[in-house]
Write a protein that binds this DNA or RNA. Sequence first.
RNA 1: GUGGCUAUAGCUCAGUCGGUAGAGCGCCUGGUUGUGGUCCAGGAGGUCGCCGGUUCAAGCCCGGUUAGCCACCCCA
Length: 463
Amino acid sequence: MARPTPLSGFPEWLPDGRVVEQHVLEVLRHTFELHGFAGIETRAVEPLDQLLRKGETSKEVYVLRRLQDEDGDQARGDQRPDKQLGLHFDLTVPFARYVLENAGRLAFPFKRYQIQKVWRGERPQDGRFREFVQADIDVVGAGELPYHYEVELPLVMAEALGALRDVGVPEVRILVNNRKVAEGFYRGLGLDDVEGVLRQVDKLDKIGPDAVAELLQAEQGATPEQAKACLELAGISGADTGVIDRVRALAGSYGAGTDLLETGLAELGALVEAAARRAPGVVVADLKIARGLDYYTGSVYETVLVGHEQLGSICSGGRYDTLASDGKNTYPGVGLSIGVSRLVSRLLSAGLVTATRGVPTAVLVAVADEEHRAQSDAVAAALRSRGIPVDVAPAAAKFGKQIKFADRRGIPFVWFPGQAGEDDVVGPDQVKDIRSGEQKDADASVWTPPEQDLRPRVVPAGE
RNA sequence: GUGGCUAUAGCUCAGUCGGUAGAGCGCCUGGUUGUGGUCCAGGAGGUCGCCGGUUCAAGCCCGGUUAGCCACCCCA
């Protein structure tokens, strides 16, 4: 068989990259649990009609089909959306389904974290995958959900990402907006296609203000005056409550003030104020943040890595009021999702973060000759019994080759079992630190490597 | 789904006017007779993505195809 080529969009890390990814996952999980989020996992598949809910028909869902299915079966079963299965596209929609399914057994407000792979049938690119890991936190309430959770959730994410700073992850900036502000402002202007306007405004960074103004007039039927107002709103950003005053003044100058706008401004102001106190410099109000997903109804969030803005958002989310609803009860929620694969791929490709080694092994026990392999195995067992990860040399090659074996894997220590001299007296075991070359007598029942060498560590690259 | 670019050794890439394939790094062996890394010498490794066409002759030109990358769309 010819050597297989990698499948684009389905990332696979080498062992040292996996060490980095697992560290990221551990830090996220630890932070989520510190804040009281319970971990859950949902199945990988959902009925297709669940995945293609209103406004999400453009999503490119991978559909499941059994090879054994015959044409007749497909005609009967696979074509019915309520029977067909698709791989989940994100973790929010499956979570909403899970909440409805288990509503009677959950305690509300329910806080959960969920770290799983998701699949999207889109064209892959740098930082864009068809199979990737998301790490979500959400809070849902029964019937209602206090606004303060919209303040707290992004701050949990800020803390989680901040906890990765010491391994080389860049600073993050969480950009926030509020759907009520945008909707209130646009409706106050007389623009009723709020979705359409948001979609055009979202392109601002890529195509520039002039092109957006043209699109607003051509596609959304805005007047030049209305388009100008939309662009002025999108131009407002800042990390303090001054932005609220500026939006209010802008709306006033266009006679676009509405109750909805005022509600949104109060919420956005509260978020900015709390964030400035609890995570100074991280959260920035940015009135051009739109978000494509239509189920958001309040706060919306996007997160960029400072210096890597072109990568796009690595952590997004928002408030949704009707995602989980069975007709009788609704469970409003707010949540954010970290794109773990997008983050990790950049950490590795940009050489920001590195693992000290790709194998767990701290010590390689050399084998003098195959007759003495049992002696080496005994040393390994003694070290392992005290929690030290050990490997035994695969062959009784020349010691130079055995040292090289360790060196290529980043194993810091090579252990030489004592050998009998000419007088048949067995000498002491020795352990060599192959980085410094230092070698000294050692006893496998008591010797311990330095703490920082015991396991692979994740560190800023270049250290 | 649309558009552009690319495809040669394990990796990064060169390859002139069309004349049967190159470098660096990595790997293996030896120098060093059982303690690596440096250095020196030697060696292995290629269906030039695939199919077809033009030509005496194609890695190179033409057509197709597949895959990858980038941009758009959308998004983590």
